[in-house]
Write a protein that binds this DNA or RNA. Structure first.
Length: 188
DNA sequence: CATGGGATTGACT
DNA sequence: GTCAATCCCATGC
């Protein structure tokens, strides 16, 4: 994946990340669900402007924005659009590929379908934490690879974002059509 | 300095 | 279906 991939409108990046592969220290999975967030809409953390918390979001594209959600979970985002714009793609679900035994151990879950079917689940499965905030997605330790094989022409379904109260009507959620590894079914 | 609200999950009814 | 856990940080006094 090149830096220029992320240096584009966040909706394009979110859609195009479906089918790509995230990996971290031997564990990996195909992205089957994403959501876009942008500083122009109130559901985005960047909506409040540049603060210590949102520094990464407003930084250059192709970096990881990792933050704590509900005091418990770490959520992984890919910063998009040029430096100075607060935009990122939330990675919400993966289809596990490599390191499944380690993911099962970390999650204490056997069923592969439930290993990475949520934004907090996949970070736990891959061993991603707040210490990865601001790391380069091109250099690692977290890296994202281009679509390969049958994923090259994956069908992408569009839906409303999950779990937010503001700007909840925007169709900014992108899913691999028919995937059994989503955090929730697509509402048609 | 005190307060309150989450881009969630898992356990329980 | 309901609900608590738990902590970072933005906001307001």
């Amino acid at each position: 994946m090149k830096r220029s991939f992320y240096d584009r409108p966040v909706l394009d990046v979110a859609r195009d990340l479906v089918g790509c592969v995230v990996s971290h220290e031997g564990c990996s999975g195909v992205i089957v669900e994403t959501e876009a967030y942008h500083d122009s809409e109130p559901a985005s953390h960047a909506f409040v402007g540049l603060t210590p918390r949102t520094k990464t979001l407003f930084g250059p594209p192709g970096y990881a924005y990792v933050y704590r959600s509900y005091g418990i979970h770490a959520l992984l985002n890919a910063v998009s659009e040029p430096e100075g714009v607060g935009a990122a793609v939330l990675i919400r679900a993966l289809e596990p590929v490599e390191g499944i035994a380690l993911m099962q151990a970390r999650r204490r879950v056997e069923r592969v379908q439930g290993l990475c079917s949520g934004p907090g689940k996949l970070t736990q499965a891959l061993g991603i934490g707040l210490e990865h905030n601001g790391t380069d997605l091109l250099r690692g330790p977290i890296v994202i690879e281009d679509r390969a094989g049958a994923w090259r022409d994956v069908d992408v379904s569009v839906d409303r974002r999950i779990g937010i109260t503001k700007a909840a009507d925007l169709p900014w959620r992108f899913c691999a059509a028919g995937s059994r590894f989503l955090s929730r079914r697509v509402v048609s």
